[in-house]
């Protein structure tokens, strides 16, 4: 849109066709834009609609006629009083509160080790990233086997005790959640490591050199130069993991199926059970929307922080 001959006096004349062609461009892209908007918004609007009804596929009426079963905000009222929902939400938050910091600290520690060159770095680096590549369902099976009462984890622990250890990891309500969290940490620390390493490498070398020449110790440099300069990328890494943990499902479902009882039932597992086993679709829509709102708030907060970090 720039015009080389746009010297000061001619600005208005030149601006007119520019606006015109911009308007034409808008008209030309309008169908595509509407399509994208529709694709993005339609499922959400449908959810909102269904969540206000008592519709289920078993009722025998198509979804667009769900208004015949209009119940207003009753689903949301039920949700407020649903202990199983709050339990699942609390459990998800608990997993997040443990797993995200552990993954962050492990990832950061590994990044510190890998930012400098050493022998065998490449091989070790690739090895470390393997868990991330494993299909979560397969990871679920691996940990299902590892945590059997006669499994390798207990065998390993038996080395340190006189009696053979026979802990029933996956059928103990407290330990099952721990086992699930260990699996998540195993699988997703590499992602954290990968993102943080990329961030750490991009911290300018000369700034670190300057800090050394000014007499700063390693710790001082790490906390005053490296970490502040990685702020944006740390927020991105944390946001990704927070959102992902909200969606934690496959590994967990294969390991425990949400059990024993509801001991490892997170939001996603709960939603799955309500949808597939109890078929209360309108209620699920209400849950999904509630979660969407929570996640959106988290994301907006993270993005705001990120933008502030990038501003000079």
């Amino acid at each position: 849109m720039t015009n080389v001959s746009a010297m000061a006096p001619a600005v208005e004349k030149i601006d007119a066709p520019a606006t015109q062609s911009a308007r034409l461009g808008l008209w030309l892209t309008l169908p595509a834009q509407l399509l994208v908007l529709f694709i993005a918004l339609f499922p959400i609007l449908m959810q909102v609609y269904i969540s206000l009804t008592d519709w289920s596929p078993l009722d025998g009426i198509p979804w667009w006629k769900a208004h015949e079963l209009w119940i207003g905000l009753l689903n949301y009222a039920d949700l407020m009083a649903d202990n199983r929902f709050w339990g699942a939400l609390w459990r998800t938050m608990f997993v997040m509160a443990i797993c995200v910091p552990v993954q962050f600290l492990l990832g950061l520690g590994l990044a510190v080790l890998f930012v400098d060159d050493f022998r065998g770095k490449r091989v070790l680096y690739s090895t470390l990233l393997v868990p991330m590549m494993v299909v979560p369902a397969v990871a679920g099976y691996m940990f299902f086997m590892l945590f059997q009462s006669g499994g390798p984890v207990n065998d390993l622990l038996s080395f340190f005790t006189s009696d053979p250890v026979r802990i029933a990891w996956l059928s103990d309500p407290d330990l099952a959640l721990i086992a699930v969290m260990i699996a998540d940490i195993w699988q997703w620390t590499p992602l954290m490591f990968l993102i943080l390493l990329a961030g750490m490498i991009s911290v300018p070398q000369d700034q670190q050199m300057a800090a050394i020449l000014l007499g700063a110790s390693w710790w001082r440099r790490f906390f005053t130069i490296v970490l502040p300069r990685m702020k944006s990328i740390i927020i991105i890494a944390l946001a990704i993991r927070v959102i992902e943990i909200f969606k934690i499902f496959d590994t967990l479902f294969i390991m425990t199926g949400g059990g024993p009882g509801v001991a490892t039932e997170t939001i996603s597992v709960y939603i799955y059970k309500v949808t597939q086993q109890e078929l209360i679709w309108s209620y699920v829509a209400a849950i999904a929307l509630a979660i969407l709102i929570v996640l959106s708030v988290v994301s907006v907060f993270a993005i705001k922080r990120m933008q502030r970090g990038q501003k000079p």
């Binding site: 300018p204 000369d206 700034q207 050199m209 300057a210 800090a211 130069i225």
Partner: peptide
Amino acid sequence: FVFQNYAIF
């Protein structure tokens, strides 16, 4: 040491 690009924090 003054760096070519100053390396200001």
